[in-house]
């Protein structure tokens, strides 16, 4: 029970900071002072206190969809180890549950978008569903490879200690997987170069146009969920790259925090240095993520290290 509360505490408190770090980095590159680090928290709290506007077309799916997706992604966070803390719930095969929970959250967001009957939201929903089809394969392959290397079917087994020795033996594989994972992270969390939340034209957006009509608390939930999802992906990537072990709690924990802040900076740098890709180019990005992970698999098979 205490581990569950601790885990939930981290999941509730930390993620918006990551968004703040990204914004700050982008502001630095643009030569501005930028919003304070804690701006995402202020935004979420502000939205939580606001009233909502609902379309007369919409049903309960529009109103509750964002809440469902927040709850489901929080539950997905429960099976994922964070920093040096094992997941409160872990079992063989929780990899699959994790990915399917993300899928469930997405399904309800897509339905909520279609519920408005707006063609913009339909467009966003359609793009989100299409691109996530492709990134889902990559996530599955990556996690399969990691499971194969760490010989465990549970996320805690993989990301806490399972990969530490693999860096010595099959480093290149892990580099490929990390690269592929980073690309998927960008696309799943609608960052540049896949999606640009700050553009002024709805026609070019993916995720942002899908949530165009939400307001008030629902929008707050969406904002928080976005941060949470980024945090979950980031924590997987950082744990994998650092090869964390469940011992030496303070040192490893410090590494993790530095790692995840570093990830925020890297994403910020990527966002500052790149422009958004044209929509049909996004596919190539996803293909290359897939190809990275297929290469990683081939390297494993050729070396025969299993």
């Amino acid at each position: 029970m205490s581990s569950l509360i601790l885990h939930l505490g981290i999941l509730l408190a930390f993620p918006p900071l990551l968004l703040g770090v990204i914004t700050k980095t982008k502001a630095f590159f643009a030569g501005r002072r930028g919003a304070p680090l804690c701006q995402p928290y202020y935004d979420i709290f502000k939205l939580m206190r606001k009233g909502s506007v609902y379309s007369v077309t919409s049903n309960w799916i529009f109103r509750l969809g964002p809440l469902i997706s927040t709850a489901v992604i929080l539950a997905a966070g429960i099976v994922l180890p964070i920093a040096v803390f094992k997941a409160p719930v872990q079992f063989g095969g929780d990899i699959i549950l994790f990915i399917y929970l993300l899928g469930l959250a997405r399904f309800f967001m897509v339905l909520a978008a279609l519920d408005t009957g707006s063609s913009f939201e339909g467009m966003g929903a359609c793009r989100e569903a299409t691109f996530s089809c492709l990134s889902e394969i990559t996530i599955f392959l990556n996690l399969t490879i990691l499971a194969l290397l760490s010989r465990g079917l549970s996320l805690s087994g993989i990301f806490l200690g399972g990969l530490a020795s693999s860096w010595m033996q099959v480093g290149p594989v892990l580099i490929l997987v990390a690269a592929s994972f980073f690309l998927v992270l960008l696309s799943e969390n609608s960052r540049i170069p896949v999606d640009d939340p700050e553009t002024h034209l709805e026609l070019t957006m993916i995720h942002e146009v899908m949530v165009l009509d939400h307001s008030g608390m629902e929008l707050g939930c969406i904002l928080y969920t976005q941060a949470l999802k980024l945090f979950l992906f980031g924590s997987m990537l950082v744990s994998m790259v650092l090869g964390l072990m469940p011992r030496n709690v303070w040192g490893q924990g410090l590494y993790f925090i530095l790692g995840i802040l570093g990830l925020g900076v890297v994403i910020g740098v990527v966002e500052s240095a790149m422009a958004r890709l044209r929509l049909n180019r996004v596919l190539y990005l996803l293909y290359s993520a897939l190809i990275f992970s297929i290469f990683a698999l081939i390297v494993i098979l050729v070396r025969g290290h299993v």
Partner: peptide
């Protein structure tokens, strides 16, 4: 757990909406 999280959020929404206004408009 997911259902519990959802119920909590739903309750929060219920409570917070008590003091706020809800508008019903055509889709933009």
């Amino acid at each position: 757990l997911a259902v519990i999280f959802f119920l909590v959020l739903w309750l929060v929404r219920k409570i917070s909406l008590c003091s706020c206004t809800i508008d019903r408009k055509e889709t933009w």
